[in-house]
């Protein structure tokens, strides 16, 4: 195993896992909590990536993260506005915003489909300079940065979901008829929830831009499926317990997903077919809980049959 998985493979899987975990956390808010499939995720991720790259390029790597989150908040607001004020179906609202974001993302990148920020200083280059000379930190500084970001977001999210607004958002997705009879305005909670989730998605994009030192219009393609797979892996492994435990489970699920992808790459699957591999992993991860229950039922039936046979 040690020969098969080198340290650097594990390292980069963990790094990417933590970065993409932010999108999985976004879906944890919109999909698991609010029960809305937010299909603007792909576009919003690229939006965060583009805004993050441009602001980083102008010499503000920290500001880049917050600028990207702000852009995500606006994108989430528009998606929510279409749903709650203009009566557009939630899935359709996401698709519309996703389409619009394609153009906006090209515009953000200065009417180009990609941006390179190789020369700009990023959070990672700053951390590299700061941690230089500290033993063991040599190659782990990237993981260190992304861990801090994802854990901060995770802990803040766990806190938020237990505040009154957080509980209201959870109730909105959990029991619409209860919400109608209590003083919660679903239009407000859906808007707040989608603004929050899209800020995470965009943050993830911004961190990836600094990590890859570039932004490409295609970075976000398929993001919603990948994040959903991470979320479902995390939820089916660690789906119970306190809010913080569940959130850590989602982060863990995202890292695990990256290990699966790394595994696939190690098996010499060509890079061009990576999206196909992703789709297969996603399909397996999503159907796994269903298949598990089917298999359990099948076993039960087999046992019952056997017992029947004994009685004869």
């Amino acid at each position: 195993m040690a020969g098969f998985f080198t340290v650097s493979i594990i390292q980069s899987a963990m790094e990417l896992g933590c970065i993409y975990a932010l999108v999985a956390l976004a879906l944890f808010v919109s999909y698991t909590t609010l029960n809305i499939a937010d299909l603007s995720t792909d576009g919003c991720f690229t939006l965060g990536c583009a805004v993050g790259a441009i602001v980083t390029l102008s010499g503000h790597p920290f500001l880049a993260l917050f600028a990207a989150m702000g852009a995500g908040v606006i994108s989430g607001f528009v998606t929510a506005f279409l749903q709650t004020r203009l009566g557009v179906e939630s899935i359709l609202a996401g698709i519309i915003v996703n389409t619009a974001l394609y153009t906006i993302n090209i515009m953000v990148m200065g009417f180009s489909s990609n941006v390179n920020i190789f020369k700009a200083s990023t959070l990672f280059s700053i951390a590299h300079d700061l941690l230089e000379g500290i033993p063991l930190m040599g190659s782990w500084y990237k993981l260190f940065v992304v861990l801090i970001i994802v854990l901060t977001v995770g802990i803040l999210l766990a806190w938020f979901l237990n505040t009154m607004l957080g509980l209201s958002i959870r109730a909105t997705g959990d029991n619409p008829s209860m919400v109608r009879a209590s003083s919660i305005n679903p239009a407000f909670t859906i808007t707040a929830g989608l603004m929050l989730s899209n800020s995470f998605t965009a943050l993830s994009g911004a961190v990836l831009a600094q990590y890859q030192k570039s932004c490409d219009i295609n970075y976000g393609t398929g993001m919603v499926t990948i994040a959903l797979a991470s979320l479902i892996i995390g939820e089916s492994l660690i789906g119970r317990g306190s809010m913080l435990t569940r959130i850590l489970g989602v982060i863990f699920g995202s890292c695990l997903y990256r290990f699966f992808v790394a595994l696939a790459l190690r098996l010499n699957i060509p890079a061009e077919s990576l999206k196909l591999v992703s789709a297969v992993i996603v399909a397996i991860a999503i159907s796994f809980p269903y298949l598990k229950s089917k298999i359990a039922l099948y076993r039960q039936m087999q046992e019952a049959k056997q017992r029947h046979g004994e009685h004869k």
Binding site: L167, R170, A171, D174, N175, S177, M178, A181
Partner: peptide, 9 residues
């Protein structure tokens, strides 16, 4: 009785 409470909370 299912209408007044949130089951997953």
């Amino acid at each position: 009785p299912l209408l007044g409470t949130a089951p997953h909370m």
